[in-house]
């Protein structure tokens, strides 16, 4: 049987756009463009490289997200992923990472996997905990924040760069790994890739398919509650140094720089 790689990808709002929040304190996904999270592109890239190295392997991209999340799956498919799974359900609205991990874990069990590949964090939530939660829920080992990853003889190996040391790790398969942006440049889709992507299958699943009770996820099922959202306060004008025409301003400027330890 082919080695089954599943890469988890997230469709996130464009970080450079003006993001807004809805009345229920969830992110307003309608008003901004979304894209495949840049850090997840590295996960897709590593999954593709592993598949190339293994030979008889198949890569599936899996996402939990609204309609627009299909864009993220299409990009992954255009990069070379073989098929995609899109979990979508209205009751998912407002789910936090506890709910997300429960849903994604069930989807992984349903599709089957030998190795799950994740990015190091999403570029919107930026919590970085999903890989660990998935491993816990699935009951498999996790090797996170890898800059290098490889598979051989039923074992996944990886390298993790820490502040004080570099670790070489390994774990028996099946397992969950996450890869950092140092793991290698993500490829661009090619024309061939985009054309081929149109014919690749996208399987749609909802909570019922996964056997998940709606009340356990969504806003009501969340373990955390967003109390309050406020826009970042406007930047206040900084101190203005006016020169008296005789150059005294230079002294004030120097004093300011020194006081702030800028010089």
């Amino acid at each position: 049987m082919s080695f089954r790689l599943v890469v988890c990808v997230k469709y996130v709002p464009d970080a450079t756009a003006d993001r807004r929040f809805a009345q229920d304190t969830t992110t307003d996904r309608e008003s901004v463009d979304g894209l495949l999270s840049e850090l997840d592109e590295h996960a897709v890239e590593q999954a593709l490289r592993l598949a190339e190295a293994i030979g008889d392997a198949e890569v599936t991209a899996l996402t939990l997200g609204p309609d627009g999340a299909e864009t993220a799956l299409r990009k992954a498919l255009a990069m070379g992923v073989d098929k995609a799974v899109h979990v979508q359900d209205d009751a998912v609205h407002g789910t936090d990472v506890m709910g997300t991990s429960a849903i994604v874990a069930r989807a992984l069990e349903l599709t089957g996997y030998d190795l799950v590949v994740c990015g190091m964090a999403s570029t919107d939530g930026a919590m970085g905990v999903l890989p660990a939660l998935l491993a816990e829920r699935l009951g498999v080992p996790q090797l996170t924040l890898l800059s290098e990853v490889g598979v051989e003889d039923g074992v996944v190996r990886g390298r993790r760069d820490g502040d004080a040391a570099t670790e070489d790790l390994r774990a028996p398969l099946p397992a969950v790994v996450s890869v950092t942006d140092r793991s290698g440049e993500a490829r661009y889709p090619s024309f061939k890739g985009v054309v081929a992507a149109r014919k690749k299958p996208v399987r749609r699943l909802d909570l019922a398919d996964l056997g998940i009770e709606p009340g356990t996820v969504g806003l009501r099922g969340a373990w955390t509650v967003v109390d309050h959202i406020a826009a970042r306060p406007q930047r206040r004008a900084g101190a203005v140094v006016e020169d008296d025409g005789e150059g005294a301003g230079a002294g004030q400027l120097a004093a300011f720089l020194a006081a702030g330890a800028f010089i």
């Binding site: 840049e38 990009k75 024309f191």
Partner: peptide, 13 residues
Amino acid sequence: DLLDSAIATDEPS
């Protein structure tokens, strides 16, 4: 004629 190609539709790419 295309030896290779790279496509980008999202802003960062």
